[in-house]
């Protein structure tokens, strides 16, 4: 084969319209989208006061704060910090676990290929939308005033918010499951519940597990923030030390959080890869 000449190109373009030259409408449509994004970016950055000069000024102030962070000190609170960090981890763990367990039945109920009733499906999805629409920080504030200060409010906030997200993701994973296995179980005389347990669950379990582990990772980080609003854990100390400008204490707490989060990330990644099995790349792609 060789590249066709211009008469041949013209002939092919006439015979198969749209293959060689995009129709003008499509072309201008694409340009309009790109131009639209550009305009929106400029407008928003102007409107929200994004300015390089202010960023530079801020960097100077950041330098001052950073210099006040050295040397990091625990000021005799070391074991209190460790205890609070443990509380944060426990909050993240319990919150994620509760959300994951609640999301399994909710995910099956919310999946169209399991529960065909459109009323249940629609109702459940809207409830989940509402739960998800409110951030876990707001839930934490609400629960602090309901059950009082402390980690219990944090656990509830994490569990509720994540149920909203995980149940939706689980439901979508279930809807994406292969129908062939379900048909196999049905053909062997299985009930709907049998199908859910034997055909669908084994397919979606790795997705469930991997999502939940991601959420555990993310919650370890966000549980720190929940403490700031009084929901227990290391965040309480962090917010307190920031309030009184005790920056070297703040630095110490951050240095304590960083390796903990890194360790959780590593453990979670390890478990995820063990559970789902990572396929090695093809030989030619690994070089």
């Amino acid at each position: 084969m060789s590249r066709p000449d211009s008469t041949r190109i013209a002939a092919l373009a006439a015979r198969y319209p749209g293959t060689i030259y995009a129709p003008p409408g499509q072309l201008w449509g694409r340009r309009a989208v790109v131009a639209g994004f550009f305009v929106a970016f400029l407008w928003a950055s102007d409107h929200l006061g994004m300015s390089f000069a202010r960023l530079l000024q801020g960097l100077q102030d950041l330098g001052i704060v950073a210099s006040m962070m050295v040397p990091p000190t625990s000021a005799g609170f070391f074991w209190d910090y460790v205890h609070a960090l443990g509380e944060t981890l426990a909050m993240a763990f319990l919150g994620t676990l509760l959300a994951s367990l609640a999301s399994i039945p909710l995910g099956f109920l919310g999946a169209r290929n399991v529960v065909a009733n459109p009323v249940i499906h629609f109702g459940l999805r809207r409830v989940l939308d509402v739960i998800r629409g409110v951030d876990s920080l707001v839930w934490a504030l609400i629960f602090v005033s309901v059950v009082g200060l402390g980690p219990f409010a944090g656990i509830l906030a994490i569990a509720l918010n994540d149920t909203g997200v995980l149940a939706k993701m689980y439901a979508e994973a279930i809807e994406g499951a292969d129908r062939k296995a379900s048909e196999g179980v049905a053909a062997a005389g299985g009930s709907k519940a049998d199908i859910a347990r034997l055909a669908i669950f084994p397919q979606v379990f790795p997705v469930f597990l991997s999502n939940s582990l991601y959420f555990f990772e993310a919650n370890t980080r966000s549980a720190t923030i929940l403490g700031v609003v009084g929901a227990g854990g290391i965040g309480f100390f962090l917010a307190d030390r920031i309030r009184v400008n005790a920056w070297s204490d703040v630095c110490f707490i951050i240095l304590l959080i960083l390796p903990t989060v890194a360790l959780i990330d590593y453990l979670s990644r390890f478990l995820r890869e063990r559970a789902i099995g990572v396929e090695p790349p093809a030989e030619a792609l690994s070089r």
Binding site: P4, R8, I9
Partner: peptide, 22 residues
């Protein structure tokens, strides 16, 4: 470029697949 796209269409035409190009 158009010449490359035309070459692809030509190859598809040889395999009776040009109608499906898009």
């Amino acid at each position: 470029p158009p010449a490359e796209r035309a070459m692809a269409v030509e190859a598809l035409e040889r395999l009776d697949m040009a109608e499906r190009a898009l």
